[in-house]
Simulated assay, not measured.
Amino acid sequence: MRWIATIVIALIAGFAGAAAWDYSGLGPDRTREALLANPEILPEAMDELRRRDMLARIEPLRSELEEPFPGAVLGNPNGEITLVEFTDYACTYCRQSLDHVNQLIAANPDVKVVIREYPILTAGSADAARMALAAAEQGRYEQFHNAMFAAENLSAENIERAALQSGMDVARARRAIEMGLFETQLQNNVFLAQNMGITGTPAWIVGNQVLSGAVGPEVIGAAIAEARDS
């Protein structure tokens, strides 16, 4: 069965047909017969192709993906397993996922959660993201992160209120933002998201998997367990 999967993957991936026949030792007719006789191998082959494609995307950028902006980390900052989350403070599903992340942190003390600010929904998203990075610089990231998601909207007043609630030096944060200290990080997050094929929030990367949407703690937890076992 494994050689059939190899042929299917080669064909789907666009490898030369002649190479596939040479590898299997079969001609086109017999290969077609074998695939028709074993159609259950096709989903397995497609899953393997997706896995290989995802690994090819992640591996060259893994160290960059898993290296956080200083302070923009939840959970265990020295954790052996890294969960990367792309998030936007205007995103309802990101807000819903906040409790999921806290559950995962409580259940997995070896997990480091790297938050990547990906403000793609509103102008307020970008303002909140800059303040979040300023909070990280001041060692108040988690406090601001929670306070911002608890706000009703991303008005300038609510962003400043979240900063004050988190214990930030707001004047210092404003100076850093005005100096453009966080623009490179935000641009880099866009670059990483585009290379991972991420077009919305929340999105998650753990191990060799990219997950999209509010998939819930069970799905992310399973991906964490797989990364731990790999």
Rank of each mutant, 00 (worst) to 15 (best):
L98G: 01
I224W: 03
A128T: 13
A193I: 11
S97G: 02
W21G: 06
I224R: 03
E59R: 15
V210C: 08
A147Y: 07
R228A: 10
A225N: 05
L36G: 03
N188C: 02
G200F: 00
I177C: 05
Q165M: 14
V190W: 09
E85P: 01
I224V: 05
M131W: 06
R52F: 04
N146Y: 01
I105S: 10
E178N: 13
F191L: 12
N189W: 06
N78C: 00
A136N: 04
Q187V: 07
A223R: 03
D110L: 04
Q143M: 01
W21T: 02
I9R: 12
A34C: 07
A136I: 01
V210H: 05
L11Y: 05
L181V: 04
V215C: 12
I115R: 14
Y23V: 03
L181N: 11
Q194D: 15
A223V: 03
G17C: 08
V210P: 08
A126D: 04
A225G: 02
E142N: 10
G197T: 06
G197W: 08
A132Y: 00
N38D: 15
V114K: 11
I58D: 00
M179F: 02
S24M: 03
A132K: 00
F191V: 10
E33T: 15
Q185Y: 01
R116W: 06
A129H: 11
A214M: 01
Q138H: 09
T122R: 10
N208W: 02
E66Q: 04
N78Y: 00
N108T: 09
M54D: 12
M1N: 07
A18R: 14
E152S: 15
I81S: 04
I12P: 00
G139P: 11
N208K: 15
A18H: 12
S212W: 10
T201W: 13
P217D: 12
D169R: 08
S212A: 14
A90C: 04
D29I: 14
T184N: 13
R172W: 12
A176L: 12
A162I: 04
V84G: 10
P39Y: 13
E66P: 08
L121F: 13
Q187E: 14
R57D: 06
V114T: 11
L121M: 13
E142P: 06
E64T: 15
I9G: 03
R2T: 14
A37Q: 09
M196W: 05
Q187W: 00
I220S: 08
D22K: 14
R172A: 15
E33H: 12
L36R: 13
I12Y: 11
D99S: 15
A193F: 13
Y93G: 00
M196I: 02
L61P: 05
R172N: 09
L74Q: 04
I7C: 15
Q103G: 11
I159T: 07
R130V: 11
A163H: 09
A227R: 09
C94F: 10
A129S: 15
A151G: 05
T87Y: 01
F149P: 04
L104N: 07
L181W: 07
A126T: 11
C91M: 07
L211Y: 04
E152N: 14
I12D: 01
G180I: 03
T87V: 06
V111C: 04
L55T: 13
P68Q: 06
